[in-house]
Amino acid sequence: MMHRVARVDHAISAALVLPEPGERPVPGAALADELGLSYPYLMTIIDPLKRAGLARVRRGPQGGLSLARRPDEITLADVIWAVDAPLPIDQAFPASRNREAERLPRLWAIAHEAVFAVFAQVALAEMRRPDDQVG
C-alpha cells in the first residue's frame, strides 16, 4: 500500500476550497477553522503552495488566501508536488543488502510514478464538481 501523508490531504483540501483568482480572498483563520486545522499549521501548507505559484497570500484588511491560477489549470499532482516532492530514488530507497531485493527501489519508483500520473490527470475544477459530474 502506498504511504499517504496527512499534509498532502490537508493541502488538497485547502486548495479545493480556496477562492479563485479575482474572487474575494478567504481569511486564513477562517480557512483554518473550516478545515479543522490550526492557523500556523495551515500556513505551513499554504507557504509551499505559494512558492509553487498555486496560492496567493494578500496581507491587510482586505487580505486573505486564494488560488493563484484557475482551478482548471491546477492538478492534484501540482498540489502534491508542491507540499511533498518525492525524494530521488537513491535517497528514498537506500541500497538493499540482499541481492533478491535489489530491484525493489525501482519497482517502488515505477509504482509511485503510476500513481502520480493519475493525480496529474485530475484538475481541482473537476474535484469541485458535484459527484454526479466527476469523471
Rank of each mutant, 00 (worst) to 15 (best):
M2F: 10
M2A: 09
H3G: 05
A6P: 01
R7E: 11
V8L: 03
V8F: 02
I12L: 14
A15K: 00
L16F: 04
L18V: 09
P19C: 09
E20N: 12
G22W: 11
E23T: 05
E23L: 08
V26T: 13
V26M: 13
A29N: 08
L31A: 00
D33A: 15
L35N: 08
Y39W: 07
L42W: 01
D47W: 02
P48Y: 09
R51E: 15
R51A: 15
R51L: 14
G53F: 04
R56N: 13
P61F: 03
Q62G: 08
G63F: 14
A68V: 02
R69F: 02
A77F: 04
D78M: 12
V79E: 00
V79A: 01
I80Y: 00
A82K: 01
V83R: 06
V83P: 00
V83L: 08
D84N: 15
P88Y: 05
F93V: 04
F93T: 03
S96W: 10
R97G: 12
N98V: 09
N98F: 10
E102R: 13
E102C: 13
L104R: 07
P105V: 14
W108A: 13
W108L: 13
A109Y: 06
A114K: 14
A117F: 08
F119M: 03
A120Q: 00
L124T: 04
R128V: 11
R129G: 09
D131W: 12
D132S: 06
D132M: 03
